[in-house]
Design a binder for these strands. Structure first.
Length: 817
DNA sequence: AGAGTGCAGGTTTTT
DNA sequence: CCTGCACTCT
């Protein structure tokens, strides 16, 4: 837009532009006909079926911009839901870019969770919470559930904390509570009865702590709307245009929330809000207020969150739920080359029960997909590192490359090789900064200040740093609090009557004083605004005066230095927060911290290769993409095999990965993979067979690695710089001669045919003392045989390279003599 | 109360 | 393999 600063003047009849302007023309520039339709259609309900890379974000932002430009909506009447905070930030930026900063003021663009927190903070007092409520992350609720499972001795009935937590989460996503579940469950089963008890206790504990867990944020908002129609009406009046991205991954609770918001008013406007009667006289056109308009965007082929309750039917049955809904299909892809799209189409077409949809592009075939099979996961990682290196030399920026994997544990091998190769990389979501113990401790201090009702937080910091407070003292405090009818937090103020030793008394009194001082700093008395820096300063007061930092500094544990650094970083985060939110309170800070997700901290990834799970990759795109571990039992994951719809969801996940790539796509796998310290044999993923052979250029196909006398492992090559064997492990110089590395080979030989069988020595009989010959290591003598069946391992002392462990079943070995 | 040792168990994906 | 946990000892 040419004039980004033009504000919409509230209260003026005229728009920001003269009548002769045709802003829509600008907004529609460069869009294809269906995209235009998606921007300009007006009606109660619109479903945009947007294939991968079809420009849906662009369409969504322009649709919002067009509503604002045409004066069809005030910014405050718009509610846009995205999947991550990062996506929300980007969408806000793009809308601002289109209509100007001021014209975008007041829009709600956020995740479901953030939007619900905002609503709940405003309305909490309506149903027994305060606006200072805490948000429990999965770790917090697991800790609570663990305690309850113990109390109820539920483990005797096979109820593990993890199982209970999963079940509660699932039920909440279905909007069930303990009571409604009890009605449908088989209550003659004692395990069920105990589960119901735990569920009910858990919910009571949350209420008492003035806390919501993740699932509650949505479910309780729905409950609020249903129980208090006049509250729901406030938001129905306010949000006239609701837009939901990634609709295929919404669960039932989220669906219900949107449904509530798009209902007509429960009471004619102008009457009885808050029973004040204030609005009776100024409500023209009152009862004609129609339901809000709803726009949803999604692609059922990219639904990958069924495991956490996402219901694909929300999108497939949209037309039934919203009769008269308009449907627009976006099939033209603006991201990837045709080869990549052909592979994606080929794979996804194996899912039955889906509407046929084919992505297409007019940018041309592009490069072929590159395939590589490593001997081990390190071998695989080495290939990835080498290819990244040559892409970089060819001018591709590191930030435009990404490596995906199915499970987080796969990142380790990649990381090792990347460090050795001096490649800058960033692992998204792997680190879990906010799950570190010291960070959780620091946050618990803040929670203890912001929400003194949160007993879990106070208990957590009771003896951190060590104050000599153990179980006995903790129980004494709890009893005293119960006897006096005060909170656990307030009980700390009376340490002298607990009947504990003087040293412990002093410790409690000191904790109480620190919390009080920080409270004064961060929660100024009525009406006054805390300075923007209050949170960062309060945090420093807490960490300093509680002795937490001193304890770490005095520690001998080398890890504690890293902990100190992490706490420094947290303080820096608080400062940064103050900079971005001059009026942000401690509660705002805790909210932001509680709702950050893995995909949100992509910001500083510039200049680095991004490593992430396939799930985290959703919604992102890169010039070059590596999908690693393309093996059976990994993708599709073995656990998915037993779950209904599991393999299909895995296929969609793979599809999501493939469609992230713009120019270059790599599939890599390893023939053996070590997990739990054990080596297992991996089979190529079935998804590879679903891709037409001529799309993939196998640098080293699974057949090469398996067949006897085939290509030597790069990892093995790497071990012998200059020809000789380097001995144990990888050396620091991992150069290998170019001549040893098989570069591109003809498709005729290495077509995308996965051999039906891998190399298999069967039950090759070996016993200590036998001599064998190995394709790479030469001759040696068997020292011992361990393991069973397919995992039998031969411990061999080779004449030239020393001791090695080999998987008998697949190692390229034969018995001699 | 706290430190240290042994053991079992767990690794799918996450707001 | 590695971690987290429970139990024991000081």
């Amino acid at each position: 837009m040419t004039d980004a600063s033009t504000p919409i003047i509230v209260g003026s009849d005229r728009g920001p532009r003269g009548a002769g302007d045709r802003p829509d023309n600008e907004l529609l520039e460069g869009l294809n006909p269906p995209q235009r339709e998606a921007v300009t259609y007006r009606g109660p309900a619109l479903l945009i079926v947007a294939g991968a890379g079809s420009g849906k974000t662009s369409v969504l932002t322009r649709r919002i911009a067009s509503l604002l430009w045409n004066r069809e909506a005030w910014p405050s009447q718009i509610l846009a839901i995205t999947f991550t905070n990062k996506a929300a930030g980007e969408m806000r930026e793009r809308v601002q870019h289109l209509v100007g900063d001021n014209a975008a003021q007041g829009m709600w663009i956020s995740t479901f969770h953030s939007a619900c927190v905002r609503i709940l903070r405003r309305e909490a007092q309506q149903f027994g919470f305060t606006k200072a409520f805490t948000i429990y992350d999965s770790g917090d609720s697991r800790a609570l559930i663990k305690r309850l499972v113990k109390e109820h001795e539920a483990d005797a009935f096979g109820l593990t904390p993890a199982a209970v937590q999963g079940k509660i989460s699932k039920l909440k996503n279905e909007l069930a509570d303990a009571e409604s579940y009890a009605r449908s469950a088989n209550m003659s089963d004692p395990a069920e009865r105990i589960f119901v008890d735990i569920f009910a206790d858990y919910q009571r504990a949350l209420q008492r702590a003035n806390a919501f867990d993740f699932d509650d944020l949505i479910a309780q908002t729905v409950y609020l709307f249903r129980a208090f129609p006049h509250v729901a009406d406030v938001y129905r009046r306010r949000f006239r245009h609701i837009l939901v991205d990634e609709y295929q991954d919404t669960n039932h609770a989220q669906y219900a929330l949107i449904h509530e918001l798009t209902q007509p008013l429960s009471e004619p406007e102008g009457e009885s809000y808050g029973d004040s009667g204030m609005m009776i006289f100024d409500a023209p056109a009152a009862d004609t207020l129609p339901a809000a308009s709803l726009t949803v965007v999604g692609d059922s082929d990219q639904s990958i969150y069924a495991f956490r309750g996402a219901d694909i039917r929300n999108i497939t049955e949209f037309e039934r739920d919203y009769p008269g809904a308009k449907v627009v299909l976006l099939e033209q892809n603006y991201r990837s080359t045709q080869n990549i799209l052909s592979a994606a189409n080929a794979v996804i077409s194996n899912n039955f029960d889906r509407k046929d949809k084919k992505l297409w592009t007019d940018v041309g075939a592009g490069e072929r997909i590159v395939g590589f099979t490593g001997y081990s996961q390190h071998d695989e990682a080495q290939f990835v590192a080498d290819e990244i290196d040559s892409l970089r030399r060819a001018g591709v920026d590191y930030s435009q490359m990404a490596v995906f994997y199915r499970t987080n544990s796969q990142s380790r091998a990649l990381e090792e090789i990347f460090i050795r190769s001096a490649l800058p990389y960033k692992i998204m979501g792997g680190t879990k900064f906010y799950e570190r113990a010291e960070i959780k401790d620091a946050l618990a201090y803040l929670v203890a200040v912001a929400n003194p009702a949160d007993e879990m937080a106070v208990r957590r910091i009771l003896n951190r740093p060590r104050r000599g407070i153990g179980d006995v003292t903790e129980t004494a405090i709890a009893r005293y609090a119960a006897d006096e009818g005060i909170t656990f937090r307030d009980a700390l103020a009376n340490s002298s009557v607990l009947g504990v030793g003087p040293k412990i008394q002093a410790g409690i009194a000191q904790l109480d004083a620190v919390l009080a001082e920080a409270s004064e700093h961060m929660l100024p008395a009525s009406g006054e605004l805390a300075p923007p820096t209050a949170v960062a300063e309060g945090l420093q007061i807490l960490l300093q005066k509680s002795g937490y930092l001193d304890a770490l500094r005095a520690s001998k544990d080398p890890q504690d230095e890293a902990r100190l650094e992490n706490l420094d970083e947290l303080v820096a985060v608080a400062r940064e927060f103050a900079r971005n939110n001059p009026e942000g309170t401690i509660i705002d800070f805790l909210t932001e911290v509680a709702l950050v997700s893995d995909a949100d901290d992509l910001e500083d990834a510039s200049g680095s290769v991004s490593l992430m799970t396939l799930h985290t990759a959703k919604g992102l795109e890169y010039d070059a993409v590596f999908i690693t571990g393309v093996e059976e039992d990994l993708i599709p994951h073995r656990i998915s095999a037993g779950e209904p719809g599991g393999p299909q969801e895995e296929r969609r996940l793979f599809y999501v990965g493939v469609t992230r790539a713009r120019q270059r796509l790599f599939f890599t796998l390893a023939m053996t993979r070590a997990q739990f310290g054990e080596v297992t044999v991996a089979m190529p993923s079935r998804f590879l067979q679903e891709i037409p052979a001529d799309l993939i250029d196998w640098r080293q196909s699974p057949g090469d690695v398996n067949s006897r006398g085939g290509t030597q492992s790069r990892a093995l090559n790497a071990r012998r710089p200059g020809g000789g064997f380097g001995g144990s492990g990888f050396g620091t110089s991992r150069r290998y001669g170019e001549d040893l590395v098989p570069k591109s080979t003809s498709i005729e030989r290495f077509a995308n045919r996965i051999p039906a069988k891998v190399r298999d020595n069967g039950d090759l009989a070996l016993k200590p003392g036998d001599r064998i010959r190995h394709d790479d290591f030469g001759e040696g003598r068997v020292d011992a045989i361990t393991g069973e069946g397919a995992k039998r391992v031969a411990h061999v002392r080779f004449d030239k390279v020393g001791a090695k462990k080999l998987l008998v079943k697949i190692a390229p070995i034969e018995k001699i003599g």
